[in-house]
Amino acid sequence: MGATLEIRNLHVSINDTPILKGVNLTINQGETHALMGPNGSGKSTLAYALMGHPAYTVDSGEVIFDGVDMLELEADERSRLGLFLAFQYPVAVPGVTVANFLRSAINARRKSENPEDPGITIPDFRRLLKNKMDLLGIDHKFAGRYLNEGFSGGEKKRNEVLQLATLEPKIGILDETDSGLDIDALRIVADGVNKLKGPQLGILVITHYKRMLEYLQPSFVHMIMDGQIVESGGPELADEIEEYGYKPFFAKHGVEATED
């Protein structure tokens, strides 16, 4: 049976300012969900809080992943359990190659399962990484570049997808992976994610725009406003938002419109 990420009545604040005000959402391995919402509605806060960023304080609620209470765990433990966050703004780590980084990440997982594990051999790792880069159409030279250093916007996002492909999480959250990309870069990144879709991967795509969703075809679409999920439906919800914007929904849910 697949893993489930279950978010129950989650309240999160930053510097004592409440941002999430009771989010409920369940994602099963193999499903693709989209989370849409206007600026400042709490989309990225949800992503960071799920991954365990120390600046985000969980005030109440529960996050259960694969039967484990995630809120007790550090970010690295959450990752090793099979949760992944593709960052909107990936951080540069000078001097650390993409390959070295990914190999360390794989070994960290293996060691947490078995402390005696000697880690993946270099030939095995090379093969794995090559396969993943070929799958995503990424130049092999990429592996030798320093992590996110001097990467273009598109390269950063492709690098996030490469990590998603290599680490094979159970649930992957894509935090505005489409932001800052032109239409060609967006297609390449979305194609990559599409190739990873399957029964082993649950996806939560966070986005402002429908464009990304046209590629990814989520079965479930949710709308977040003022820290709560106010609408959930199928792809038609995304169409509705695309056509009318968020305005009608502000009125419908009695939420004051935020500056966009």
Binding site: M51, G52, H53, P54, E74, A75, D76, R78, S79, R80, F84, L85, F87, P90, V91, V93, P94, G95, V96, F101, S104, A105, A108, R109, S112, Y146, L147, Q163, L167
Partner: peptide, 24 residues
């Protein structure tokens, strides 16, 4: 946080950043 979100412990992440720093 970025490195830890990929499964590296805090100590491993620190060490990776330092090693990268001296790499050149």
């Amino acid at each position: 946080f970025y490195l830890m979100s990929r499964g590296l412990s805090e100590a491993e992440a620190n060490s990776m950043i330092v090693n990268g720093f001296i790499e050149p």
